[in-house]
Amino acid sequence: MRAISRLGQLVLGGLEWLGGLTGLAVTLIRVGLRRPWGIDDIASQMVHLGVRSLPIALFISVFIGMILAVQFGSALRDFGATMALGDASSLALVRELVPTLLALTVGSKMAAGISAELGSMKVTEQIDAVAALGADPIKKLVWPRVVAATLSQPLLVVMGNVIALLGGMLIGEWVYGVPAGYFYETYIDELAPMDYIQSLTKGTAFGLLVGLIGCYQGFNTKFGTEAVGVSTTETVVAISIWIIIADFFITMMFY
């Protein structure tokens, strides 16, 4: 009985959270699509969220490419088909691994950062101060972060796709003796425009989730410095869950 009650509370809590997130999204559309556009704030957040995430995004991407090439190469060698390494790697990397793993790592980092920053602002009444000074906290704080995350994540995915290709190429050449030029040609030949679109769609959707969930969690931080830690941890958990869910539905949409 207690287990059922707890399950019920969990479901209700989840629905409440989802309702709050949807409410924030609706408010964001309402206030965001009004002048001023906040271009300076968006640009500043893109530097903060996107450009500063570039090194880790590139580092992760090159290793994703290398790891996948090692795994596929090992299997293909058993069939004497290592020359198919480029074809085999490309779809998995571009459609799935690069956008999803970047979202789970770099995206989580972005969302946790947003959540911690806004949570600290909430605890120290800076969000109230924004409102008290006559500005709209959603427009001033949420809008630039959500837009910047939504634009930054697909750009990181583009960079990540290129770097993952290079990682796979390195392993192909050094470990399996697949010439780099051949790897590149077979890799690119395997990809259709829709694969790039799928990759960018995932990057954009994940970026939107990163921005929204990070801001929502930050704005709903309870009082006390401990609450900021709790909120940030919950953000990482929520991002992980919702990115996997969104990944499934976007993947289904393209089949």
Binding site: E125, Q126, D128, A129, A131, A132, L133, G134, D136
Partner: peptide, 23 residues
Amino acid sequence: DGEGLRRVRRRVAYVFQGGALFD
């Protein structure tokens, strides 16, 4: 509404307990 509150907050300033300066 939002614009009305903005008008009020133009006339009424608030000094927060901890200052609430933007870090």
